[in-house]
């Protein structure tokens, strides 16, 4: 990350962790799913996977020179400057890959939200907005490591912005707003404290990641890491074809997404699942359908089938199964399997 040369371990070479990878990929295909929370023990490649995701992120069209990466096709959600440019007809667009923007744990509010441009004011006496991390994150992926350790008021900031898709800044002599719509990915180790219920619910999908309990897989992790460390560039090169394939697959899925059919039977099944597991509100139902649709697109199908629902249900329900504090109950996979079988 310091320079463009910093090479991350190839996403496609990560051993196992299929559910986590799937959850991340689905969100790239349909950002409306609402992000992913990755929970798990320490040292299970959570951060590695998320950071290397950049290798398969698709390209998007952006207004040239815009710090908020405004979408030329989305005229309703533009920053003031881009709106002007569009109106005057004098603008250029560029095609740029999506990025993974990280939020450092020690970030201060002013840098996250944006603030007054100090240099500019001191030198010219004029106010100017200096964009923060939320600006960088627009139309990208925002990764928050150790999200459970974030300060409360910072969490509130993220929540506000993510919910509205816009960042409203009213502070330190600055009044400004800009689009801020991002895929929120958080990782955490539950041993270090739980997430506040409001934030938990905000994540579309949740994955529990556990360490490998198979000697084979553990050994494979070590072997691959060894090869990578020896020559990162060469190892990455050796994975390039697989990486390309995955990128292409994602791109196609995004294109197909709107055309994937969601039959009435699927909608009903989704509702039945939500009711059976006692879900509050409609978020679970909607997320189930969106995720299933993205899954179908990824698998190259023209319509959603029950298998898609089965594949995504654990990811959607995991963190929403109503748990009282101190209860040991966690989401029961077997119960889900039985229920799904009973549906078909």
């Amino acid at each position: 990350m310091p320079s463009e040369n910093h090479v991350f371990f190839p996403f496609v070479a990560i051993v196992g962790q299929d559910e986590m990878k799937r959850a991340l990929l689905l969100n790239i295909i349909d950002p409306g799913i609402g992000g992913v929370l990755v929970r798990g023990e320490k040292g299970t490649a959570k951060s590695t996977a998320i950071r290397s995701l950049a290798q398969v992120l698709p390209e998007t069209e952006q207004m040239e020179g815009c710090p908020f990466h405004c979408d030329p096709a989305d005229t309703g959600n533009m920053c003031p400057e881009c709106a002007e440019k569009l109106a005057s007809g004098e603008f250029n667009t560029v095609i740029v890959p999506m990025r993974v923007v990280e939020l450092p744990l020690s970030a201060t509010e002013d840098r996250i939200v944006g603030t007054m441009d100090l240099e500019h004011v001191l030198q010219t006496g004029r106010r100017r907005f200096e964009p923060g991390v939320l600006a960088q994150a627009n139309r990208n992926l925002l990764y928050v490591d150790e999200v459970n350790l974030l300060e409360d008021h910072i969490v509130d900031l993220l929540l506000d912005s993510a919910a509205m898709g816009t960042n409203y800044v009213e502070r330190e002599g600055v009044s400004f707003s800009h689009p801020s719509k991002f895929i929120l990915v958080g990782s955490m180790n539950p041993e270090e404290g739980e997430l506040r219920p409001q934030l938990l619910d905000r994540f579309g999908l949740c994955v529990e990641v556990a360490g490998e309990r198979s000697v084979d897989r553990r050994a494979a992790v070590v072997m691959r890491r060894l090869d990578f460390d020896r020559d990162p560039a060469a190892y990455t090169e050796s994975c390039s074809e697989t990486t390309e394939d995955l990128s292409e697959r994602i791109r196609l899925a995004r294109e197909r997404l709107d055309d994937v059919e969601v039959g009435m039977d699927i909608v009903v099944a989704a509702s039945e699942i939500a009711v059976h597991f006692d879900m509050e509100g409609m978020r679970a139902d909607i997320t189930l359908i969106r995720a299933a649709r993205a899954n179908a697109a990824f698998e190259g199908r023209g319509a959603v089938v029950k298998e898609d629902l089965a594949a995504v249900a654990p990811l959607v329900l995991e963190h929403r199964v109503r748990r009282r504090p101190f209860e040991n109950a966690s989401f029961d996979r077997r119960e889900l399997e039985d229920f799904l079988r009973s549906l078909s």
């Binding site: 023990e41 320490k42 040292g43 299970t44 360490g211 490998e212 000697v215 553990r218 060894l226």
Partner: peptide, 27 residues
């Protein structure tokens, strides 16, 4: 230097037997 597959397996087995969380111990 390289590590033989056997030695890597040994590392993995030891870490499992000692019930070590995650991969950092192995690495």
């Amino acid at each position: 230097m390289r590590l033989t597959d056997d030695l890597i397996r040994m590392i993995a087995s030891i870490c499992m037997a000692a019930d070590i969380d995650g991969f950092r111990g192995d690495l």
